[in-house]
Design a protein around this nucleic acid. Structure first.
Length: 591
RNA sequence: GGUCCCGUGGUGCAGCGGCCUAGCAUACGUCCCUGUCAAGGACGAGAUCGCCGGUUCGAAUCCGGUCGGGACCGCCA
């Protein structure tokens, strides 16, 4: 090693000994004949000092050095003179008196500050990520991610899980997100897909008798990014044999409770975690990933308005819908703009409008009050238990639309009105999800994943009569209103799997064509099995309190998938394209 | 595919029709300085205001387009 110690470990106990440090010039303080340098590495910062009259060569070297130069410094550790200690640094009681300074490398003036926590435009940070990673905040996030993953590995291995790498070149499937494709040289015109998850592979491992598998798996999907998702992300992929949903939830809960205890900045509220059936989550919160950091639960107002003459409500109820409501505490004085914003949110979920009732004294102010009877208004007040000064919001529509519309408004208000308890994290399980969901075109699709098992034989049979009522063995792990992961107990009989595919309009032949491997495997003694796949990026985001997934990835890309550092994607060599049997047809003038 | 926001010396911001010959902080360069730790002091260099076009006597400023970035909708089994 070029060093004997790191820049973070020099302490009073080293006084008198000679050390050699190597690191980057964090800051230089040049007093003429006396020069200080803060030498920085991953571990910390140590002050190096040199005096012109005591060691002219070392002093000159320190004085000539610039920020981000890489130095190797040999010298004696000594106590700092009384009154010059720096309580802000762990190494602040001592300093290294340079006897020999070697410049290992110079550096251009960095494109942005390494030694200050100022905001820098992201593209610049990603282009110079090797400079950015030296910054304290970036380093801490990447370190946190490492520590979390390290903990996960130990946890899983201790419990008998095997870490198995699955292939990254799999078969493309049109369901779900757009695949990222890799062309094949031996099969011109054919492509591998990068896995959106190792779902089928891990199930096949169960058929192979692996019993307990995990992987820190890179997953890909070619969809437009958001703040919390990008082209590639990492999931903790887990699968176990001979389990029921509660077994996987117990494992996940133990793992995540420990992770939050060890790594989160805030305590995890409610252990054991609440477990809400999907139905209850929708009923109480209008969301399948409710934020439990605040209340404002939804209320059913259908009873209040069963006999109403108000058209908007009456029509919704007549066609089997519901009137659902929510109390916004203290917002009877909501502004026009606020109401408009909330209404727009509700409409995005399909609501036709958002009725407001402002409770001030005995009066109920509302744009629809004139259509309602005094008894109905009194009933509204009773059912919602709203107090003076409160605002009641209501949506009349199908049960689901009314609930979800209020759910998004609730979510928004939790943030906007700062209702959420920010002193803790709130975890929960949502389980017994619907098995299938309607497509916009009126057909059926899987609610989560086509391999999720029906909750019971009866739920499977419901597909024949009332598919939307069929429940599944799906469960989601939710923290602070963010879905951190989901899983299920899977189908382990081919016939059941084919029945599910049939519901999606996929024939036996088509299923065999697209999902042949897993279907065949189910015929060779597939054990009951299930698992979960929590997202590692979102976990780290939640632990660190960052709202941006790029911050927790080592080499992020922009919203168009552009990598400013590697300048990728880029054109491929013509010869390579020829070998692959590819010809570029469209050539957009991007970059 | 769409909506909204942003683009000004290296970095972060201000300026939003003429007082701009573009301001501030910091970084950068030279010099001074013996105990600093965001060291201090003096001086200096550094910007076709993303790009193209338009309106105007006059555009960093207003308008249109375009490129890039971000947030969101669609999309995300």
């Amino acid at each position: 090693m070029l060093r004997t110690h790191t820049c973070g470990e020099v302490r009073g106990s080293h006084v008198g000994s000679e050390v050699t440090l190597a690191g980057w010039v964090h800051r230089r303080r040049d007093h003429g004949e006396l020069t200080f340098i803060d030498l920085r590495d991953r571990y910390g910062i140590t002050q190096v000092v040199a005096h012109a009259k005591e060691n002219a060569a070392a002093h000159a070297a320190l004085s000539d050095a610039r920020n981000e130069w890489v130095l190797r410094v040999r010298g004696a550790v000594r106590s700092r003179p009384e009154g010059t200690r720096n309580a802000k640094l762990p190494t602040g009681d001592v300093e290294v008196v340079a006897s020999e300074v070697e410049v290992l490398n110079e550096s251009k003036t960095p494109p942005f500050y390494v030694n200050e926590e100022t905001e820098v435009e992201e593209t610049l940070r990603w282009k110079y990520r090797y400079v950015d990673l030296r910054r304290e905040r970036s380093r801490d996030l990447i370190r946190l991610r490492h520590e979390v993953v390290d903990f996960i590995r130990n946890f899983m291995v201790e419990r008998g899980f095997w870490e198995i790498e699955t292939t990254s070149l799999i078969r493309s499937d049109p369901t779900g997100a757009r695949d990222l494709l890799v062309p094949s040289r031996y099969f011109p015109g054919k492509f591998w897909a990068l896995p959106q998850s190792p779902q089928q592979l891990k199930q096949i491992l169960m058929v192979g008798g692996v019993d307990r598998y995990f992987q820190i798996a890179r997953c890909f999907r070619d969809e437009d990014p958001r703040a919390d998702r990008t082209l590639e992300h990492t999931q903790l992929d887990i699968e176990m044999s001979f389990v029921e949903p509660k077994d996987v939830m117990a494992l996940g809960e133990e793992l995540y409770t420990t992770i939050f205890q060890k790594f989160a900045r805030k305590p995890l509220r409610a252990v054991p975690w609440p477990r809400l059936r999907y139905e209850e989550a929708m009923r109480r919160f209008g969301s399948d990933k409710p934020d439990l950091r605040f209340g404002m639960e939804l209320v059913d107002l259908t009873e209040v308005f069963t006999a109403t003459t108000f058209n908007a409500f009456r029509e919704a109820l007549a066609s089997g819908g519901a009137v659902r409501g929510m109390v916004v505490p203290g917002k009877a004085n909501a502004t026009r703009k606020e109401i408009d914003d909330w209404t727009a949110l509700a409409k995005r979920k399909g609501a036709k409008g958002l009725a407001q009732f402002a409770l001030t004294g005995e009066e109920v102010r509302s744009q629809v009050a004139k259509f309602l009877t005094p008894a109905e208004l009194a009933g509204l007040r009773r059912a919602t238990e709203a107090k003076d000064g409160d605002l009641v919001l209501a949506v009349a529509d199908t049960y689901r639309i009314a609930s979800e519309a209020l759910g998004v408004v609730r979510e928004h208000l939790g943030q906007a009105l700062r209702l959420a308890d920010t002193t803790a994290h709130y975890a929960l399980w949502v389980y017994e999800f619907p098995l299938v969901d309607r497509t916009p075109s009126g057909g059926w699709t899987f609610a989560h994943n086509p391999f999720t098992a029906p909750l019971s034989q009866r739920d499977l049979e419901l597909l024949d009569t009332e598919p939307e009522k069929a429940r599944s063995k799906q469960y989601d792990l939710v923290v602070d209103g963010r879905e951190l992961g989901g899983g299920s107990v899977r189908i382990h009989h081919r016939a059941v799997q084919e029945r599910i595919f049939a519901q999606m309009g996929i024939s036996k032949d088509e299923a065999a064509e697209r999902f042949g491997a897993i279907l065949d495997a189910l015929e060779y003694g597939a054990p009951p099995h299930g698992g979960i796949a929590p997202g590692v990026d979102r976990l780290v985001m939640t632990l660190a309190g960052t709202e941006n997934i790029r911050e927790v990835q080592a080499f992020p890309k922009t919203q168009t998938g552009w990598d400013p550092m590697l300048e990728a994607p880029a054109a491929a060599d013509a010869e390579l394209l020829e070998e692959l049997g590819l010809r570029v047809v469209a050539k957009p003038e991007r970059r």
